[in-house]
Design a protein around this nucleic acid. Structure first.
Lengths: 202, 202
DNA sequence: TGATTTATATATTGCTCGATACATAAAGCA
DNA sequence: TGCTTTATGTATCGAGCAATATATAAATCA
């Protein structure tokens, strides 16, 4: 679209790489906790470069969200979509969610959107719409998989795909919440069987 | 225990009232968003009085949490405990949650703990333990009601009270999340019947 | 080459934050 | 009535924040 050659000194850093680094900082420290110093240091650029390339802190944040939504589908959802057996898919989804929710390793717990960004909904303008779109998208992706199973006959024709998809999503949110409050992987795994059964019950 | 008369000038404001005012500010603006100016103005006291009476901002926050946990049981839970008919109790619980989650009136959405405090778990020391205790307490209160129904014979003897209680709690968390992201009451009410049925299914 | 344009680096801005030093007011105790 | 203790009010602290002004470096275009 815009093929016109650019004038002036070219950027000396990679835009997308810098965005990914910024995402990591926001993920680990949250929006308020991530200072411009933290961000620009991780991105390997100086303050003015950040402002000229991304606008301001808020715009940078929104851009990391958009990038995440475009590229990184949350891993649990990908597992749910690719595992052939539907019961294993549901179980695999929840197991991955539990792993994410209780992994203290990197400092970046859970799905960026569901776990980190979601806490800034009321605080940073533009976040709510993006989170809402992400929830909607995930609901639909999960429901689509259930619909496939209905066509294959693995699930009954009257299986309420969208309701179960939304329930699965909310269960994920519950796990994330409990994980952040200190529940261990072992704790959360206790009613895994029960929940898999509930999701697929008819 | 400590009946010794106090020396010196007595406090000219009511401790508990000030705490409730502070809670309102934290509720509406979050921990970071609530500045000392906001807090002391709402409490009707000056900075030094706040520090001498409550310690610092973080301690004030923790004290509002403890006070909320002691006094204000979340209204949905109370409804669930008092409504005689178990199906109406579950429905009433969820309806109240949806109301809370989508009410834009006061600026203080949802349960203070589940909706506001929970977003600061990783950020403010001492919050995680309190939230964990609150989840645990709520799980048990919900499960206790199911157990009562089992004794009355309204629910089957093998009804998994604790699992359903935890599920009910996580559904609440999901509603809160969607509400904050912009879902309307009408949106959330759509699969209310489905979820009531799931919670009570056997 | 010189002119233009854009990115970078240094240094610094004004602001708000949480927290306090200081002096004063008001209580109990002798 | 002093003396001690605690709360209050004013005024302000240093730190850290997001954001910029200014000058310099590196590219394209004539």
């Amino acid at each position: 679209m815009n093929d016109t050659k650019k004038l002036g000194r070219p950027r000396t850093f990679d835009y997308d790489d810098a965005l990914m680094e910024a995402m990591g900082v926001f993920w680990a420290k949250g929006y308020d906790g991530a200072s411009l110093r933290d961000l620009t240091k991780a991105m390997g650029i100086t303050g003015p470069s950040m402002y000229s390339a991304f606008g301001d802190k808020r715009e940078l944040y929104l851009k990391t969200i958009d990038r995440y939504a475009d590229v990184n589908g949350c891993e649990p959802v990908v597992i749910f979509e690719t595992e052939p057996d539907i019961e294993k898919a549901v179980r695999g989804f929840l197991e991955k969610v539990i792993k994410y929710a209780t992994d203290n390793g990197s400092g970046a717990k859970g799905c960026f959107l569901a776990s980190s960004v979601s806490t800034n909904i009321g605080q940073v303008e533009g976040v709510a719409e993006r989170v809402a779109a992400a929830i909607d998208d995930t609901d639909r992706r999960l429901a689509a998989r259930f619909d496939e199973e209905k066509e294959k006959g693995t699930l009954p024709a009257d299986f309420p795909s969208l309701e179960r998809a939304a329930l699965l999503y909310d269960i994920r949110q519950g796990y994330m919440f409990r994980g952040r409050a200190g529940w261990t992987e072992e704790d959360l795994r206790k009613d895994l069987d029960h929940r898999v059964q509930m999701i697929l019950s008819h």
